[in-house]
Structures are given as C-alpha cells and as structure tokens.
Simulated scan of single mutants.
Amino acid sequence: MRLRGLIHVASILLSLATAWLFVRMYFSPSWKAISLRNWQGSSADLPHTKPLPNKCGNQKSCPENFFAFKVISGAASVVGPSICFENTVLMSNVKNNIDRGLNVALVNGTTGQLMKTDTFDMYAGDVKQLLDFLKAIQEGVIVIVASYDDPATKLNDEARAMFTEMGSRAASQLGFRDNWLFIGAKGLKDKSPYEQHIKNDAAKNKYDGWPEMLEMEGCLPKKLD
C-alpha cells in the first residue's frame, strides 16, 4: 500500500511539473510559442539558395540595356586569350578558335548576338587579311579585340588608323609583344573607355620577354534603335 501511494504521489507531481512547463512555454514572455514552422525549421535555419553568379563571372551585375563582358589577353606565348560576352564564351583555348596576334570578335550592338570571330597573325601573317576584315565591319557593330603573344609587328599605319577610328587610344602605340584589350565600334564619335594596354618592357615584364596578362570586365551599353 505504501509503495502504491508513493507511485501515486510521484505521478501527481510529474503531472504538475508538466503542466507548469506547458504554462511557462506558452504564456511566459521569456519563452516563444513553437509553431509548425519553428518545429520544421525556421527560414534562418533552412539552407539558402546561393544567388546565381553574374554573367561572365563578373564582380558586378549589369543594368538593363547593358551587355556584360569579360576579356582576358594572352599570357606570354603559352596561354591564349578569352572573350566572354553576355555569359557566352566567344573565343578561348577551349573553343580552339584563338591564335597568335589579334583575336577579334564582332557582336551585334543591338541584340548582342555573335556575328563573327577571326584571328590575325601580326608576327608572320599578312596584314591585308586584317585590313579586309576591318573594312567590311558595319557601323554599330561591337568590335572586341584581345592580343596574344605579338599584336604589332605587321600592324601597319592603315590598320592602326582604323582601330583609332573605332575609338582606340593605344592602337597607334602598339609595339612588339605588347598586351592589348579593346572594345570599340566603327563610327564611334568618342574614344572608347573599354581599353587596356601594357608595354613590353624588359625591366617590368612579369614573364620572360612578355608583360603581364590583362583582364577587363564591365558593362557595355546596347545600341538602341
């Protein structure tokens, strides 16, 4: 009888304790009610979906009516250049469509669609091929250029002048094994802000006989009709 009484008392105490905890949990200001969402896991506890990377892997996204781009020059005579436009790689080692000299991609300035790519060997090639290519470009077409190895040995005054008319500041100064990145357009009235140039300087070169690789990324305004 005594044992049964103790069990009964213990049961009552346990019930009281459970009721006290229930009251504390739902009515005390220091406790928070547990909802189904809390039980399954709050939004803070759920795994967050990582934001999609910016186009071309750029550091910043581009506003509406702008194209995203990233252009990288060649590194010495070992690693070729690459051109990415609106998250599409237009030219690269992987695509196997780059070569020594000037690597050029033409893009529709309104739609962003690739029109043509070509390479021009400016060390041992024929500059006439480059001249014919440049003369055929229509106004409003975006011209993207990335150098590799040597962009200038065969680059004559006529070709330099044509790049200058597209907005280049550096075309007239390009020398043997310089690195050069440029985005311009035929009929551009002002100088292009999308250009980088580094001279081949034995005292400053990063590689043996070549300057360091260049990289340029940003947002290019669309040509609006």
Rank of each mutant, 00 (worst) to 15 (best):
S30M: 08
N97Q: 08
L134D: 03
A152C: 10
S35H: 15
A75Y: 06
F69P: 11
Y123W: 14
N96R: 13
A44H: 06
F66I: 00
V79I: 11
V89H: 00
D150I: 10
T49W: 14
K50G: 03
V107E: 07
P29H: 08
D150K: 12
I83K: 06
V145D: 10
S35N: 15
F27R: 11
T117C: 04
L90H: 04
N38Q: 13
G57V: 12
D99T: 00
A33N: 10
F66V: 01
S30T: 14
L114M: 08
V79S: 05
L106T: 06
N58R: 10
G74N: 08
A136G: 00
V71N: 08
K128C: 01
L134P: 01
V104H: 08
D45N: 09
S73D: 04
S28I: 04
S43T: 12
W39R: 09
S35P: 15
P53S: 11
N65I: 00
L90Y: 09
N65D: 04
G109E: 04
K32C: 05
F67V: 03
N38A: 10
M91I: 02
L90M: 06
I137A: 06
N65K: 07
C62G: 10
L114C: 00
I142Q: 09
N93E: 09
P151M: 08
T117M: 02
A76E: 14
E86W: 01
S28R: 05
F133A: 00
Q40W: 15
Q138S: 13
T110Q: 12
V107Y: 08
D132Q: 04
S82I: 00
K55S: 13
K70R: 15
N97Y: 10
L36H: 09
G57R: 15
G125L: 02
N97H: 04
W39F: 15
P81D: 10
I34N: 14
Y26R: 06
D45L: 13
G109M: 04
K116E: 13
E139G: 05
L46I: 04
G41C: 12
E139F: 05
V71T: 13
G57F: 14
C56T: 11
K32Q: 13
N54P: 03
I137Y: 07
P151L: 07
K128L: 06
K55G: 02
K128M: 08
S92H: 08
D132G: 00
M115F: 03
